[in-house]
Amino acid sequence: MEKQSIEQLQNICTQLRRDVLRMVHAVQSGHPGAPLGCAEFFVALYFDQLHHNSDFKMDGKGEDLFFLSNGHLSAGWYSVLSRSGYFPVSELKTFRKLDSRLQGHPATHEHLPGIRIASGSLGQGLSVALGVAQAKKIDKDDHLIYVLMGDGELQEGQVWEAAMYAAHHGVDNLIATIDYNGQQIDGPTEKIMDLKNLKAKWEAFGWEVIETKEGNDMKSVIDGLEKAKSLTGKGKPVLNLLYTEMGFGVDFMVGTHKWHGSPPNDEQLAKALGQLQETLGDY
């Protein structure tokens, strides 16, 4: 894929945000807040970082692979997958509808290209990513495994089982990113279940930790992922703490948990779309 400019990548982000809002609005269900906040990450990954082939193969041999552990960001993932050629953009209109490949949470049973495992029940994706990373090591395939988790998701115990395992086994071909937006469905993480010092926690578990402080700035996100990549292959798993704002890109949605699992109504959608220029053409 030809290298895109920062401006081009930003245009894709704007379209992704439009896709997400239109998708959840159409079925009046789903999770708009977090995918709006992760637009830069999704686009940087699929349009700039991943060495991947949109001609989908389940085993992903000879490619970098991405796993979405926080499956409720499905609308954002489906948008970036379709916009990067995994399946027709027009299929986004089937999101969450009967007989669709675009299930409410990602699933493999309808064989949607780009999806390798179901996610939605939180806390499982890092373990899965570790398994694929170790399969790559056995096969002497030096491509990388990426996984995205929510910060609230870190309240699941399995994540810490996986964190301990990754460092013990030196799984250094893996970059885990935390969507560090400080929000979860019932409220701010510090009120619901305080995560305290995440950097210190992951470092104590034996990970190499980098912080991407501007997770909604395309250049910063790319720089962070480049830095993370430069730290792979050195015996330690790599964690990217990505500071984002839930709901970024829409003034009345940003920085609150209120749009975690609520779709906009007709009026709210119109207002939100008014702030996001159609750049690649709506589905």
Partner: peptide
């Protein structure tokens, strides 16, 4: 280690990798 949930997830990942 004593971490069965992680073991099942890793197994699924290994299966993805063939």
């Amino acid at each position: 280690g004593i971490a069965e949930a992680n073991m099942i997830g890793i197994s699924a990942g290994l299966a993805i990798g063939g």
